[in-house]
């Protein structure tokens, strides 16, 4: 349940930056599949800082069925079905957004106060916040069945950031910088299913891992935090033209401050507040907003996947 439904979003101001994002996902199945189903979290949603002019998903081949819905977190979900033989699937998304500069609040409230206020929330706001306080698949802060909890490890790893009485905005900046400075960005170090414990141990990962890490650091202290999926505008190396298709999906997170709302932080880039970020949606962790996943039915074969993303400022 989004507290700010789409129609509450103010029209873009003259300070907004306009981005066009192209996101192409190409599956090649190696042989003809009889049937295929996929579910995509690829259409961008409105946020207090993001006006979505358009977000359009097309496919090749044309799908036989297409259903759109809004999930419990307020994200736009598209379900696709190709019910005839096909050996590939291209999913193209083109999104036009205007992103407003974000403000970072200065509440001066200690993180302990934020945690206490969060714990006391009732009513509809409790519905909004509670998913982001829980243990989840990629952010295990509670022992479930035979899966270990990372709560103690997270508390220990971020102990320096949660000092007594420290204002929440300082803690947010601290956690963000700590990951940025002490964790190595290394695409070879993890996969989409690497557990948080491994990321903590090897101090390396990619944007999803760092987002999960920051989410865990806050949830372990009773502060609501959610995982955000989207894109970031990147600069080419100095003196070189920007390479088409070189951008990628990105992930960061957000922390909830009572009476203010959500503050985004991008620990991969050490940035607080949405800056050159385009938001698709959010959830408890990656599993809730995986950009695209699905099931194909057909003979066994070699499957390949390629993704191309371009974020262009207009």
């Amino acid at each position: 349940m989004d507290v700010l439904p789409d129609h509450f979003v103010p029209p873009p101001s003259e300070h907004g930056r306009r981005y066009t994002v192209s996101h192409r996902t190409a599956y090649s199945y190696g042989s003809e599949m009889l049937d295929g189903y996929s579910v995509a979290h690829l259409l961008a949603r409105q946020t207090p800082f993001q006006y979505v002019a358009s977000s359009v998903l097309t496919t090749d081949p044309d799908v036989d069925e297409r259903d759109e819905r809004v999930d419990v977190f307020g994200n736009h979900v598209v379900q696709l079905g190709v019910h005839r033989p096909h050996d590939h699937l291209l999913v193209d998304v083109s999104t036009d957004v205007i992103v407003e500069p974000a403000t970072v609040p200065e509440t001066g409230a200690s993180w302990e106060l934020v945690a206490a206020q969060t714990a006391a929330i009732r009513g509809d706001m409790a519905l909004e916040i509670s998913p982001y306080l829980a243990s989840s698949r990629f952010v295990p802060i509670r022992k479930i069945a035979n899966e270990a909890s990372q709560r103690d490890a997270l508390v220990a790893a971020f102990g320096e950031q949660f000092t007594t009485g420290r204002p929440i905005e300082d803690v947010i900046g601290g956690v963000c910088n700590f990951i940025f400075e002490h964790y190595r960005f290394d695409p070879a170090s993890t996969t989409v299913s690497t557990p948080l414990g491994d990321v903590l141990a090897q101090r390396a990962g990619v944007c999803q891992d760092f987002a999960h890490l920051a989410v865990g650091a806050f949830r372990a202290r009773g502060i609501a935090s959610r995982y955000v999926s989207g894109y970031i505008e990147t600069d080419p190396p100095p003196g070189e033209p920007k390479t088409i298709g070189a951008d990628a999906s990105h992930a960061w997170c957000a922390v909830w401050i009572p009476e203010y709302g959500w503050v985004d932080l991008d620990p991969t880039n050490g940035i607080v507040g949405p800056d050159r970020h385009v938001t698709i949606g959010w959830g408890r962790d990656y599993a809730d907003v995986a950009p695209i996943r699905g099931v194909v039915i057909g003979p066994g074969s070699m499957q390949t996947l390629s993704v191309e993303v371009d974020v262009v400022r207009r």
């Binding site: 009513g123 409790a126 829980a134 509670r142």
Partner: peptide, 26 residues
């Protein structure tokens, strides 16, 4: 979800459960 809004059950515990199915809400 009055049990959540009125804090009759621990919503963190509820949401931590894999058996609380997101798609069933609503």
């Amino acid at each position: 979800r009055r049990l959540v809004t009125d804090r009759i059950i621990d919503s963190g515990l509820l949401w931590s459960s894999r058996r609380y199915r997101v798609a069933a809400i609503g």
